[in-house]
Structures are given as C-alpha cells and as structure tokens.
Design a protein around this nucleic acid. Structure first.
Lengths: 219, 219
DNA sequence: AGCGAAACTTAAAGAAAACTTAAGAAACCT
DNA sequence: AGGTTTCTTAAGTTTTCTTTAAGTTTCGCT
C-alpha cells in the first residue's frame, strides 16, 4: 500500500517513516505543499497522512486538491492543532480521520488500518445489454448514455428480460413476474407493454419468438 | 439517515438522542446488546454509535455482528475506555472510528458526518446539484447563491434526495429515512413535503417517477 | 397461396398514483 | 401560557399509467 506522509518536522517524519515501513507501507515523504502535490500527481498514492502546518502553505490546500479528484484517497490529518474547532473543520473539509499531536503511534496505525480496510470496497448492480444499461439499485435505465424514464410496469418487464439475457421467456412467465398471485391479467397486457418498450429502444432490441416468448440480448 | 445509538446510560442517551435528531438523524436507541441486535435485524440501520460497556454483555458483540453482515454499516465507538490499547483493539475489531468519553458533541457529529459522507460516497460535506448547494455540516441550503431556510423535515428530505443524486428513491425508502421506527406515517406526509420543497426550488428540480419514487439531479 | 393462430397496434375506459389544499395537532419559542 | 411555526391528515382534484378490447398485420403451415 502506497502512503504519502506530509510532515515538515524532520524528527517526527523520520521516526514515522521508519515505523510505517515496519507496518508494511511503502512511504513517500513530503515536507511541503508543493512537493506533496507533485507526489500525488503520480496517481500511485492510495492513502495520505497530512500535517496542516507546512512551511509553504497549509495542509488544507493538499486536502482540497485530493478531495477534488475523482479517485478516493483517504486522508488522516495529524497535526498539532488539537481544539475541537480544528477537528470539526478538518473533518468537514473532507478528512477521513483526525489525530492531534501528541499522538500514540499505535493509535495512528490502527486508524490507518481502518482507512486502508475501506479502500477495497465498492459495488454496483448493473445490468448491461448492448447499448442498454440498467442500474437496479438506482432504478435507472440508459440507452447509449442517454437516460430514459420508464413507467413502473415497463421497467419491471425490462428488468425481467435483462435479468435473463439470452433466455427466452414466455408471456406466461413474464406475467408471473409482473403480477401478484391472484391478480389475473385477462388480456394482452404484456404485448402492449412490449410494444411501448419497443418504441423507446432500437427496433431489434427485444426479439419475439413466435409461439414461444420474448428475449433480449445475445443468443 | 437511520442511526442506532447503543448506550446504557440514560442521561447521556437522552441528551444525545435529542441533539442527534436535531442534526437530522432518525435515531433508534438501545440500552442492551440484545435489543441492539434486534434493531439491526430490521436492516434499516445505516450508521451505529456504540458504547462498549453494556448491562447484558459487551458492545464488541454488536460490532462483530455488524461486521459479519454483507451490508457495510459504519460504527463509531463511543466509550469510557480511553486507553490506547482499547482504541487499537476497538478499531481493529472493525470499528470505523473511536471516541473516548468525555467527548465533545461537536466532534462526534463531525465524525458522524465523515461516516455518512462515506456511505454516500461523497468527498465533502458540500452537496451540489445544479443551482442548489447544501452544506451538511453547516446545515444550510443555497439556491443560486441565495440562502434559504428549510424546516427540519424538509431539510432531511432534501438531504436524503441530494445524497442520492440520480438514484430514485421510493416514498417508502424516504419515509424510512425521515421517521423513527414505529413512528408510522399514516398518510401522504412525504408528498406534502415534496410539494412544499417544490415551491421553493425550480419546478423541475425534484422529479417524480410515478409508481417508483422521487429523484434529484442528473440521470 | 390461403388459412388460422399469434403477435402487433391503437384508442379509450378504468384504476392507481401523485398533487393540492386546507385545517387541526404538535412542537417550539419566548 | 400565548403565539408562531412546522407537521400530519384527509379529502378532492388532476395526471398518468395500465388494462382492455377490437381491428390489423405478420408468420408458419398445409
């Protein structure tokens, strides 16, 4: 794990670097805002320990820069400014943790472990099929990047189809997915919904297999 | 945002609950391990404040239970045990933050904001969406630079929407975020709040997806 | 080629969801 | 306690979605 330590006090820095390496981090070190930004630009840094009082500016500049990026890099502020107001301000600026000096290295390391633990967790529930992307958690549908709004039943139908790409589903099966038990469909509702969906997507997106059912996607 | 406060000292708990609600959380409260686990089983809790010393066991049992789940729920430990060893142990057990009593509420709230920021994968306490800017730490809302005052529930609703830009949320989901457990909304309260919010913002700001829910922002 | 079954299209009635409004309850603030 | 703001409820209204049904087209089969 690539860590950047921004700290201008050389004595503190030397000691920290040593024990951080011991902890298994590969450590870059900056004593200035300028150099810190340079290090960050390499794009390899995954985690930052940040002192606020630096010779050529304030650490918050570095923080701002990090938080403006798309990439998520946890920042632990480690500074002499220990008042509640300082802490609140630092955390609200986007820091992930805040430790006031004097600090105990063991606590810092524990907090770093928390931060690095978090780096590897992201998830999304996307259904993709050609130009069509469906995010079932956000309830959104996009056709070649352009998002469109589907009524409830149409959305449900499309979802049923996309969850079973390449598998043909009969009207009966689809009905069962869209309707509660006992909620009879006395007519051609599915056909009508398919019709409406087709008007919103490329004409060959939903394929009909006469007498069998409907499919979406590669086959 | 649904928060679970696990704390057996009633005096501390009452005060915290009050100010947490003021901060815009909907708060569940447990004084025991047993009850805490029950609350968690509902699946609605998004964030936990955890005291370690409980009458029927240790808070770490609750922590273990949470971290064994698939769902990611940040846990902030808030306890009288303030030694470095305690902190390291707590953090290494999976807690996301650790605050020793006596604590300053302002710091707790700031650290909670860090946690909820992370839940919503945002980088700072500023939520922006078109002309609307919301500062969740200062509790302010600005519409094209002009700041406006929202009642508490409207603020909570707007926050819930802005924390999930582009994600459609059902009335049910929104209700869950605004109301405590057992506090049933027997009516169309959400609709009415939406209505009021709409009068204060551009007409197309909050979009309705009939039968699905409400969204704000790009899609 | 012609027949019948299946699927498509269209429009309109019916149902469901959301919007408005206003009034009473609750909470909040001197 | 009195006045004010905010919240909830409920009923009436409007909008949109869903289903129905009837007419049309397409497809596959003999």
């Amino acid at each position: 794990m690539h860590l950047l330590l921004v700290e201008d006090d050389h004595l503190v820095a030397q000691g920290l670097i040593r024990s951080l390496r011991q902890e298994g981090y590969s450590v870059e070190h900056s004593g200035t805002v300028k150099h810190a930004l340079e290090c960050l630009s390499s794009g390899e840094i995954e985690l930052v320990i940040l002192d606020l009082g630096l010779p050529d500016g304030d650490g918050s500049q570095v923080l701002k820069h990090i938080k403006a990026q798309k990439k998520v890099i946890p920042v632990v502020i480690l500074t002499a400014r220990g008042s509640i107001d300082d802490k609140v301000q630092g955390l609200d600026m986007g820091a992930d943790d805040y430790l006031a000096k004097p600090f105990d290295p063991a606590e810092l390391f524990a907090r770093l472990r928390v931060a690095s633990r978090r780096i590897n967790q992201t998830q999304s529930s996307l259904l993709r099929c050609g130009d069509v992307v469906m995010d079932t958690s956000a309830h959104t549908v996009k056709l070649s990047g352009q998002s469109l709004t589907l009524p409830r039943k149409e959305y449900m139908l499309l979802k049923a189809l996309m969850e079973n790409q390449g598998r043909v589903q009969s009207k009966q099966q689809l009905e069962n997915k869209l309707y509660q038990w006992g909620e009879e469909v006395g007519s051609n509702a599915i056909e009508v919904h398919i019709h409406h969906l087709r008007k919103k997507f490329p004409s060959d997106f939903i394929k009909t297999l006469r007498g069998i059912g409907y499919v979406v996607g590669k086959r």
